[in-house]
Simulated scan of single mutants.
Amino acid sequence: MQSIEAIFGLVMLLAGATIYQWVDEDGNRHYSDRKPDVEQFVEVELDEGSISTYRAVPTPAPAENGEGPENAGAAGPETPERAARSNAAARRDELERYCNDLLEDLDAVQDQLRRGYREPRGQQLRDRRRELRAAYRRECV
């Protein structure tokens, strides 16, 4: 439920709209971009830094233009330029996989934090999230 609230909050933040929050008589928290019909509500100020926007980007399918590994020797002998390009492409692919793994790990930690925890597990999760964010910023941005 909190992830839905975060996504909703992000959409509303990007749209530049005012967000209203209120609690109904059953204790359920509600959010809307329209002013509610209840007397007790709050206009929510969103802090962009508190909204998690990390999501892994799907890896595109391999191109079907004959450049795949199965056709590696079909275009002639390996030249130094071709070897350098293939090494650079392999490094890029490896970095992309590493960055996607970091994002997936970060999402998993964030989901665990949203589900709730007991100390000291919460601090361990926050520390892990901090490490993953630092690694992502250092290696992938």
Rank of each mutant, 00 (worst) to 15 (best):
M1V: 09
Q2M: 04
S3H: 05
E5M: 01
A6M: 11
I7T: 15
I7D: 12
F8C: 02
F8M: 05
F8D: 03
G9Y: 00
L10F: 03
L10W: 03
G16F: 05
T18V: 07
I19Q: 02
Y20A: 04
W22D: 02
W22C: 02
D26R: 14
D26W: 13
G27D: 01
H30K: 09
H30Y: 00
Y31D: 01
S32A: 04
D33M: 15
E39F: 08
F41V: 10
V44G: 10
L46T: 05
D47M: 10
S50D: 06
S52I: 02
A56T: 07
T59A: 09
T59E: 07
P60Y: 02
P62Q: 02
A63P: 07
A63L: 14
A63R: 10
N65L: 06
G68P: 07
P69V: 00
P69W: 01
P69Y: 03
N71Q: 15
A72D: 10
A74S: 15
A74F: 13
G76S: 06
E78K: 14
E81V: 13
A84G: 09
S86C: 07
N87Q: 15
A90W: 02
A90K: 07
R92L: 08
D93S: 14
L95H: 06
E96F: 09
R97C: 09
C99P: 01
D101I: 08
D101R: 12
L102P: 00
L102M: 07
E104P: 00
D105A: 11
L106R: 09
D107V: 08
D107P: 01
D107L: 06
A108V: 02
V109G: 04
Q110M: 12
Q110L: 11
Q112I: 02
L113Q: 06
R114V: 04
R115F: 13
R115C: 10
R118E: 14
Q123D: 09
Q124T: 14
Q124L: 15
Q124Y: 10
R126G: 02
D127M: 11
R129N: 07
R129M: 14
R129E: 15
R130Q: 12
R133S: 06
A134D: 12
A135I: 04
Y136S: 01
Y136L: 05
R138N: 11
C140L: 05
